[in-house]
Nucleic acid binder design. Structure first.
Lengths: 111, 111
DNA sequence: AGTTTTCATCGTCTATCGACGATAGACGAT
DNA sequence: ATCGTCTATCGTCGATAGACGATGAAAACT
């Protein structure tokens, strides 16, 4: 597995982290991400065919993922190309890990 | 017929993961978690004093965290005790990591 | 030309979120 | 018994999410 540069990734603000997590907090968007995983072709139509949602709904979900910075968007000729941003996803994962560690780290836990 | 097949290596369903991520996707709740981190005393009032939100609002956020299974709730005598569930948080972190890895796994990266 | 395909956006609808104040219940202290 | 404190819940409000169909634009294909 390749290592991503991660330039000061964990310095993200709480709002930023919250936005990315919000983008991840919907089953349809998780399904979309899985669909985009593995370097698939990633046009909107293909996602629509696998999700049983209206095209406009899928487009909205994709937009949310793009606005959160988790998916890159390339308006190719006709069929737009959506592609996962591995660094951004890795950054989110790192942020969550950091959060968990900071919450569970110290303390002899008197309770 | 399931809408989302979702072959999972983690035991959690997509809805479950989404719910936990939704619980994490609010700056106030992230701040609450940080407050609860390190085995603090964790009564509602203390959180209120550090968050500049109404007590009812904080109670709501705590409830969301409890319902997501990320925080444990012990209705002690007068002042309730809120406490992070480290295992649940770790599970969320693992789920996110698994998601990221499954999405970025084979990545030919040629467009 | 026209047609089809694909996509983004608009408008609209309902449901939920997020905030607050007010209130009631439970408890300790006086 | 009464007062004060802490908490959870209720009711309400505006804002937003999430879904859909309809529409328009751009590229590709007759």
């Amino acid at each position: 597995m390749k290592t991503f540069p991660l330039p000061q990734n964990c310095a993200a603000s709480a709002e930023d982290v919250a936005q990315k997590l919000a983008a991840l907090s919907h089953p349809a968007r998780l399904a979309i991400l899985r669909r985009l995983g593995g370097g698939r072709s990633c046009c909107c139509k293909e996602v629509v065919e696998h999700l049983d949602l209206a095209q406009s709904t899928v487009s909205q979900h994709l937009k949310i993922l793009v606005e959160a910075g988790l998916v890159r968007y390339a308006p190719e000729r006709q069929r737009s190309r959506y592609q996962i941003d591995p660094a951004a996803l890795a950054a989110v994962s790192a942020s969550v890990s950091a959060l968990v560690e900071s919450c569970c780290a110290d303390e002899g836990a008197d309770i």
